[in-house]
């Protein structure tokens, strides 16, 4: 069964083959459920000209934000950005290109990309700047625009637990875009908090089946909180 063993022992091995100008799809929402170790590895590799597909771009000094420090990102495809000063600066200076994409369309681009569907119609964005220049069609009296799917050279994903075969379970709202990203990478790298033996996870509870996963690594995570909001006891 070793042919199904996806575990790699280092982040160097996990991200091997990543080169300049590649497209990377990343899971995470804000700083929740982001593949912290893969992002750090991309920074240390120094690859440039990257296109990153992710809902957000981290913050200054953490998450995808650290890839801005050495200008490794050429283009960002995201629904909401600008939580970091460096992003704003590079955007205004023209060093960084941004393709703002509605959040549901972004999720669907990943899912359909992973499912071999090259494009899909959606009502989201019709009549707005997002729909400009895109093919549109009417179905049952309602307007829809054609959106193209995305596939990444790499997908980087944060899971909670996985078995050695790459069957992954996510924890709470750290799931978000991760299972979609996992389907849409030519090489999908998953980092998790705990790796267990096959058979230890309930097959019916798996979120991402191992067929989507190429490399699996156990990492340690800071899990920084963006907006800590509490109530009194």
């Amino acid at each position: 069964m070793s042919g199904f063993d996806k575990v790699v022992s280092s982040y160097e091995e996990a991200m091997a083959g990543l080169t300049d100008d590649m497209t990377i799809i990343a899971g995470g929402f804000g700083l929740c459920g982001i593949p912290e170790g893969c992002i750090k590895q991309i920074k240390s590799m120094g690859v440039k000209g990257l296109t990153i597909v992710s809902n957000n771009c981290g913050v200054d000094g953490f998450g995808l934000g650290i890839l801005l420090e050495d200008r490794q990102i050429k283009k960002m495809i995201a629904s909401y950005v600008g939580e970091n000063a460096l992003f704003e600066k590079q955007l205004l200076s023209g060093e960084l290109e941004v393709e703002l994409t509605p959040q549901g369309t972004l999720a669907e681009k990943m899912r359909s990309g992973g499912a071999g569907i090259p494009a899909f119609y959606t009502a989201t964005g019709y009549g707005t700047p997002v729909g400009d220049g895109k093919e549109s069609r009417v179905f049952n009296g309602k307007h829809y625009i054609l959106e193209e799917s995305v596939v990444g050279d790499f997908a980087i994903v944060k899971g909670w637990k996985a078995d050695r075969f790459g069957n992954v379970i996510y924890r709470k709202t750290a799931q978000n875009f991760n299972p979609l990203a996992a389907t849409a990478g030519k090489i999908t790298v998953v980092e998790v908090e705990e790796i267990v033996e096959p058979g230890e996870l309930d097959p019916a509870q798996i979120h991402t089946p191992g067929i989507y996963v190429d490399r699996l690594i156990q990492g340690t995570f800071e899990k920084r909180i963006e907006q800590r909001t509490v109530r009194a006891k």
Binding site: F29, G30, L31, C32, G33, N55, Q103, G104, L106, A107, E108, M110, R111, W160, R171, K172, T173, A174, Q175, N176, F177, N178, P179, L180, H207, K223, R224, I225, E226, Q227, R228, T229, V230
Partner: peptide, 24 residues
């Protein structure tokens, strides 16, 4: 819990009977 946030990225809780799922 850092893994438990809302769309405004604030920490939240879930009520009994809640469900959690992917962005799609």
């Amino acid at each position: 819990d850092a893994d438990m946030i809302n769309a405004g990225k604030q920490t939240v809780t879930a009520i009994p009977g809640a469900s959690i799922f992917s962005s799609s």
